[in-house]
Design a protein around this nucleic acid. Sequence first.
RNA 1: GGCGGGGUAGCUCAGCUGGUCAGAGCGUGGGAUUCAUAACCCCAAGGUCGGGAGUUCAAGUCUCCCCCCCGCUACCA
Length: 726
Amino acid sequence: MKTFYVTTPIYYANSLPHMGHLYTTVVGDFLKRYKRQRGYETYFLTGTDEHGTNIERASARAGRTPRAHVDYVVGELKKMFGAYALDSEHGGYDIFMRTTEPFHYEGASEFWRRAAARTTPKGRENIYKGFYEGWFCAPCATFKTEAEMIPAAEEGGPPLCPIHERPLDKVSEESYFFRLSDYDEVLLELYEARPDFVRPEARRNEVISLVRGGLEDVSISRLKSSVSWAIPVPDDPQHTVYIWFDALLNYITALGWGSAERRAQVGEDLFEKFWPGVHLLGKDILRQHAVLWPAMLLAAGVELPRAVVAHGLWLDQTGRKGSKTLGNALELPTLLRHFQVDAVRYFLLREMSFGQDCKVDYEVILERSNSDLASGFGNLVSRTLTMIHKYFDGVVPLPDINEGRRLLAKRAGVDSDAQELSTSLELMRDQFLLHVDDYAFHRALEAAWGMIARVDKFISDAKPWELARDEEQRETLGAVLYRSAETLRWLAVLLYPVMPESARAVWKQLGLEGDPQDFDPARLSWGGLRAGERVGEVAPLFPRIDKAKTMSEIEKEIAQRKEAEAQTSPPPSTTQEGAHATQAAVPGAPTAAGTQPAQPPQTGATEAGAPPEGVATYISIEDFVKVELRAGQVLTAERVPKSDKLLRFTVDVGEPEPRQILAGIAEHYEPEKLVGRKLVIVANLKPRKLRGFESQGMVLAASVGEEGRPVLATFTEDVPNGARLK
RNA sequence: GGCGGGGUAGCUCAGCUGGUCAGAGCGUGGGAUUCAUAACCCCAAGGUCGGGAGUUCAAGUCUCCCCCCCGCUACCA
């Protein structure tokens, strides 16, 4: 039997359920149900990533143990998943994976050992011990590179995380590294050989250019003394496994890879049966899944996933990412209170052009529910079944029109056979399947709704209520209603993965036996509805929502919540509501020079608050004196290897040692001609590494013309080296 | 700076390899109808297809230049 394994990311267990969780899980659930209908044996994984500093901190804040904390969050997530029919009980996920499972520890350890025992494609050891030092953001669970932080507010203070606007922690420790840098070529070959490995294509391009730019080794451990809530590094109890390395492995440990315990639970062959799988994820965690993860698997000699499929994010109406602090995120409890589960599921799959970002608010959902579901699908079910009750006492009429009555039917504008309708149904079905297989769920649903419109029109044109007044047209009337009802049968099957409960309700209202989940949409054929069978009772599937009333209720709730939050809780520490758990980036690795302590970020690192272009703004003299400009003299100048733009200078600025300064002017200046030249340099700029060399300052140059050609600033009179400019 | 994705009706977006491609849905206005959840059906916007130039018998659809938005990335220090 064909198998299909699909995963969502495992969500980081430090925050309560939100749209991002719901969305990816709905997509996974949809795919699982769909593939199951298509005859695959399926396995659907979702779950939580439960280790790391961030969990430790969140639990401490909440006054719980980490374990109690993650249990609590898991409980909330499961409740939400249950409410949306995503859990096992409702036919959804097969496992709610937790990285705190003992079998995961076992599998992850095995994986580490396996990787450590093997070499990289370039013949070096996969895992080596190094030393890591840097600024660490706990909520992000990641080290920040200099470009990724906000300068300290006060002198000497720690820089801030741009995402959380919290001070970063200085972390310096021995660490194991994964030699990711040796995998760039293999990965590029992979993307080349398997164009569908990363989807959609725009994301694939991104990943390729990222890898082309070269990869750095990644730190994959922390000292146990700094992060104890984690999996111990095998054979080195002083260290714990870094969260990303740990988390990604869940996709295979869940299937029993590397764990005798798990295999005993689920059977010896679960992994062989279902791996490789398809990974669904938000584009914010694409790198980890498209770069790190395959490299890890290669390192351990495990088969690569089938595909890494990235979707977009949900934005508010102004295009900002939904976030708790901004108050622009949709609240799941509110959603649940005012909208039907299947309406939300439908909305999520229909509204977002898969792969792209999408704007949402409650009103958009409400309108989709009313127009597509209440007026569209629901109404078609309702009008069809009502007429069958009314005109045929609730018994499915005959599909055919006898020879003798065909002219009559024709006169009423009804084709004597259903050929035309059944053909377009098949066409729609084929498109639906094609689009789903291409991850274009919104297109699939669009196609289905085109069919609904078609049948609505067919009914309006045939005017059953007029046919009903003419006893001669009884067969025509029956045929019209049969066609509509049979279309609904097809739709119930096709839409089952989207809206399981509603599809079943339609099935039941049509008086059908069995369950739409057991029908393969690819094998639907015209005429499955049996004439003479009784249809069920008619009940509105998607009651129309009173927009004015509901919207005002929702607004009231939002206002109340804001008030409550303002009173009870301190400002939330998490500002970003990432679509997924492990939202952080893999930490950067040590650079060639090794363990340079990170310097306080320099001014100007961000452009936030920059004045509008062309508008003069004043700075105070205090601002100016912060900039230490000095005269300097070029002692040596040379091109930086493998760099088009950079020159490396040593400059005498009147200090005991000359400074090394890099400047991006190689395209316009010959290094030899610069030796001995007097320059103006910024002496108190935060040092920064470029191409492996630390630049301890900045050379001033005019930027001329549109291309920004640099022209070095200099003096027309002699000045001593080190003279301050003010 | 580089790479990628976009800029098409009020809104959300379709429009592949150039010639009914100037469209759909929603919203709005009008009409018709009553089986249905005031639902369904019909008609209506005259939108410079971001701007400009070019190729062509013919260009949202190809080429070049420019502007704007978004994403990724960088040797912008």
